[in-house]
Design a binder for these strands. Sequence first.
DNA 1: CCGAAATATGAAAAAATTTTCATTATTGTT
DNA 2: AACAATAATGAAAATTTTTTCATATTTCGG
Lengths: 224, 224
Amino acid sequence: MKILIAEDDPQIALSLKKNLTGEGHFVVIASDGEAALEEIEKDSFDVLLLDWRMPKRSGIEVCRQLRNDGDQIPIILLTALTDISKKVEVLEVGADDYITKPFSFDEVCARLKAVVRRSGSKSKRLTFGKFRLDLIAHTLENGEERIKLPEMEFELLHYFVEHRNLIIGKEQLSEDVWKLTFLPDTNFIEVTIKNLRKKLKALGSVNYIKTIYGEGYSFIDDEE
Amino acid sequence: MKILIAEDDPQIALSLKKNLTGEGHFVVIASDGEAALEEIEKDSFDVLLLDWRMPKRSGIEVCRQLRNDGDQIPIILLTALTDISKKVEVLEVGADDYITKPFSFDEVCARLKAVVRRSGSKSKRLTFGKFRLDLIAHTLENGEERIKLPEMEFELLHYFVEHRNLIIGKEQLSEDVWKLTFLPDTNFIEVTIKNLRKKLKALGSVNYIKTIYGEGYSFIDDEE
DNA sequence: CCGAAATATGAAAAAATTTTCATTATTGTT
DNA sequence: AACAATAATGAAAATTTTTTCATATTTCGG
């Protein structure tokens, strides 16, 4: 997951970044409202953690502008309790959720996942750890670097991520990814898996594709 | 556009099909609620024209089931005036709009376009005439046949359809599609356009990609 | 430990895609 | 009509992707 933290208090921002990075996410910090808008214009993020009060442009203004621009990024507002009178107000400006300060890191994590999961069904992107698979551009990104995947490698990874944490047999891959009605008599499935593992490794992946001897493979994503 | 008409009155169904086909769309008819659900399970459509009263499963039941299943296909209910007391009821079952019988073909067309346009911003598919470009699978379909486009051809067509009815110069294509900062000294843009035109022609296309001498190209879609 | 089965790996062949190349066709101006 | 510029076309070369092939490695059960 690629997360933008818009927060003018460096202590909060850095603490969140440290913890979220430790969970395997890619984090960018913007210390005021304008910088946040610039980051969002420059690049895409999976979710925005947005402080309510900030210099230059407040969180509310940022939120309103994004929604007016038609941007559908999931937004979580970080607020002091006195900042809001009702949750209705949060929804009015177009945020998806809010968290009141002080907050626990566990609560931030839970809300992040819930908000991203809620919008995920319409997403044109799948995430695992700090990785993002763009379903339209057929690219894989680790937060800093993006590569275009050849078609079969993209299809295979897409299938794995959609079936993360399940055991997928080679017959299933043959049928669903390669659209074959029989197990191939050469080992191109293994070769493609090799090629994909190599690409993931080059982008700094931990070991996502696990072999289950005699059964198939499982794409392990502990964050889900 | 690929349209499913769920309507038990053959006269209405056939008349709509004839007119919509004449406008360049691809139309499938289901004559009862069950057949409609089966068609939607078998294939994907851009919009569903759904008769309120039908044998086996009413339009209301179909609509409710689709929404309960999480299906987001745009739905227009076809109703007698006595069938509804308020528009609120239509929205409650999850339809996007309704048309009261008897209706004019022009009204059907206008509502179809409006409903599809409203949901189009979240679409993973672009349509022109009877064609559909799947942004995730990178396939082009004419309602009956589907081909996978090689990457550069897909990117080019995607760019054209997103900029339909505008004039696109070769410098713009070089920059935006090929990500080059200079005009190429060989003519691969023209060659790719040739290859794409050939694919469109094989699928029964009228002439979408028009050359504007000395300026570039325009993807002409009269339906928009 | 051994052997068979399953899987990983690297190289090469086959196939597909992209780009280059050369020529023909079209357009617009003089 | 002639000419230059622009664009279309087909073929071939270059590049990339996919699959085949052969061998090495790993796993598991006897």
